Computed example of a mutant assay.
Amino acid sequence: MESVKVIMDFMNWPVFLLVLGMTTIVIPLGLNVYVYAVTYADRYREIEQVPPQPIAIVFGAGVWDDGSPTPMLADRVQAAIDLYKLGRVHKILMTGDNFRPDYNEVQAMSSYAEQQGVPLSDILLDRAGLSTYDSCYRAQSLFGIHQAVLITQRYHLPRAVYTGRKMGIQAVGLGTPDWGIFRNDSMTYYTFREFIAVIKALWQVQVTRPQPTVIGPFDGGKSQE
């Protein structure tokens, strides 16, 4: 009888592995589809489609060693500039990483916009936007933003809009191009990372609701010296 049990247990392993594989793939996939679907109607690809909003929120996306914005970041800021010049937004919140003195996403974003005619009086800076969650949390709690258009690449936009809404922002999104613009290997990596990030975002906004890394006002990495 013991040998029969061992054989039956062995025969069940493929079923167990199949169920385990389906669980680890199907559930995360379903959650990603859910976030994509519930934000679909309020995500736009063209600037002319975006309904007027009080403010645009632009998420950081890296700077080069010389302090200039990476192409992804420049595209995001440019979209905000175009919205501003069309009168679709009246202010722009640049939110990104300036946690270290030698790394300043928001200054790169602000300088890029200012060089194209956006007055500093219409630019807000959040130097502690260290993640999508932190940026949305602080936009609502610190800057008092309750309605905005969120600007990022299309692969990232569903999570950004979903997170913004759960943080109390009536959010729509403008997605800048990504696939076909940036290298395929880079986009493959970003897309896979985003797949995982959506699961983390759902856990944060639905379960843990952590405070952001920096809660109150923050004037950049120099304040940490």
Rank of each mutant, 00 (worst) to 15 (best):
M1W: 06
E2M: 07
F10E: 12
N12Y: 10
N12G: 08
W13K: 14
P14W: 01
P14F: 00
F16M: 04
L17T: 08
L18C: 13
L18T: 05
V19Y: 13
V19P: 06
L20W: 13
L20Q: 11
M22H: 11
M22I: 14
T23L: 15
I25V: 13
I27R: 08
Y34M: 03
V35D: 11
V35R: 07
Y40V: 13
Y40C: 13
A41P: 05
D42H: 12
Y44K: 12
I47E: 07
I47M: 04
E48T: 14
E48F: 03
Q49A: 04
V50R: 01
V50H: 05
P51E: 06
P54S: 06
I55L: 10
A56P: 01
A56N: 00
V58N: 00
F59Q: 00
F59D: 07
G60D: 08
G60W: 01
V63G: 00
W64Q: 13
W64A: 02
D66K: 02
P71H: 09
M72A: 11
M72Y: 14
L73Y: 07
L73E: 05
R76V: 03
R76N: 04
Q78C: 00
Q78H: 13
Y84I: 03
K85W: 09
K85T: 04
L86P: 12
L93Y: 08
G96V: 07
D97Q: 03
D97N: 15
D97R: 01
R100D: 06
N104S: 06
V106K: 00
Q107S: 12
A108I: 02
M109N: 02
Y112V: 00
E114R: 13
Q115K: 15
Q116D: 05
Q116F: 10
V118K: 04
P119K: 00
S121C: 03
L124H: 07
L125C: 05
R127C: 03
T132S: 01
T132V: 10
C136H: 03
A139M: 07
Q140F: 02
S141L: 01
S141R: 14
S141Q: 12
F143N: 05
A148M: 09
L150S: 00
L150P: 00
T152P: 09
Q153V: 13
Q153M: 04
Y155K: 09
H156D: 11
H156Q: 07
A160F: 02
V161I: 10
T163M: 05
G164C: 10
G164E: 06
G164H: 06
K166H: 15
K166S: 08
K166M: 09
M167C: 12
I169F: 06
A171S: 11
V172A: 04
G173R: 09
D178H: 12
F182R: 10
M187T: 15
M187W: 11
T188A: 14
F192W: 10
E194C: 14
I196E: 06
I196P: 02
V205L: 06
V205F: 06
V205W: 00
V205Q: 07
Q206C: 12
Q206H: 11
R209C: 06
P210C: 10
V214R: 08
P217M: 09
F218V: 02
G221Y: 04
S223Q: 14
S223K: 07
S223F: 02
Q224F: 08
Q224M: 12
E225C: 08
